[in-house]
């Protein structure tokens, strides 16, 4: 699979670097503000490091939202707690800057109303100033994205849209054509959350996107929680996306009375990073 350098943007370039090492990229998600803003920034930076300095190739920072209709319980719980503890949209720029300082591309993944309310152009401006790479917009399909398309062109930001097993060929082509960076394949029909078995729909969906010949990497998300699962997804996709399982380590740390303890988080990141490095690539 040869990628189209013109469409890779900054986050897609990280996928290409991973590919040059003969492996899939690891993409990690954590929400801003859980267990509190400073610790969440520390945790988000830890995604890039794991335990031994080997971690995610791309970081997704979530901004908690009051009505997270696409999220399962783990991300809901962390997000609700973060909101109760007073997280604000503007707090994301500090986290973006901290990740950017590590050299790892930082994406923001959030529900569209928060961006729209901040102002699409204003957000792009402040996000770019902080060193951010782009946005993942799970509830903003290209059909509704006119303003974001032009603003992201202006600021040269990556725009990652989602595709699903239920996407028609026509919608798949339209959505992939609108992406810059990479394509987010939600391989499980359902909300976010760790699953013991990852979806068998993933290989088919990845194949369908690649068949479009657009030269964009494909990341597969929803359900991965271990290095072994990362290895199996990494065998078929260009990137392995992990969210809920990472969030769960933070929920468990708080439940154990040690909310600032990132040991388990770092260990899981290390396990996942090792997983994508031992995948048998197809």
């Amino acid at each position: 699979m040869t990628f189209d350098a013109d469409r890779l943007g900054r986050s897609g370039t990280a996928f290409a670097s991973a590919q040059s090492e003969g492996r899939a990229a690891l993409v990690g998600y954590l929400p801003l503000g859980y267990p509190d803003v400073p610790t969440s920034v520390e945790a988000i930076v830890a995604l890039t490091q794991g335990t031994d300095g080997v971690g995610c190739d791309v970081v997704e920072i979530g901004i908690p939202y009051s009505d997270p209709v696409m999220d399962g319980l783990a991300i809901q719980r962390a997000g609700t707690a973060a909101l109760q503890r007073g997280v604000h949209t503007r707090d994301v720029f500090g986290a973006v800057a901290a990740v950017a300082a590590t050299g790892t591309p930082a994406l923001v993944m959030t529900y569209w109303n928060l961006i729209e309310h901040y102002g699409v152009r204003a957000f792009a401006r402040d996000f770019t100033a902080a060193g951010g790479a782009g946005l993942i917009t799970p509830d903003l399909p290209p059909d509704e994205a006119d303003e974001w398309m032009s603003v992201s062109d202006e600021y040269r930001l990556d725009r990652v849209f989602l595709v699903a097993p239920s996407s028609t060929d026509e919608r798949l082509a339209m959505t992939v054509a609108a992406c810059r960076g990479w394509v987010y394949a939600t391989a499980v029909m359902g909300v976010t959350g760790a699953r013991t078995e990852t979806s068998d729909a993933a290989p088919t969906l990845v194949r369908r996107v690649r068949a479009l010949g657009t030269g964009l990497p494909v990341g597969v998300g929803l359900g991965v929680s271990s290095g072994d699962q990362a290895a199996s997804v990494g065998a078929v996709a260009d990137g392995v996306i992990v969210g809920s399982a990472l969030v769960s380590t933070l929920l468990a740390a708080e439940a154990a009375g040690t909310p600032r303890d990132l040991t388990a988080l770092r260990a899981l990141v290390g396990d996942l990073a090792a997983g994508v490095r031992r995948a048998e690539r197809s």
Partner: peptide, 12 residues
């Protein structure tokens, strides 16, 4: 109006 939903729901 419009459709601000995850791609997974478009087909339905």
């Amino acid at each position: 109006g419009g459709r601000f939903v995850p791609e997974a729901l478009f087909a339905a």
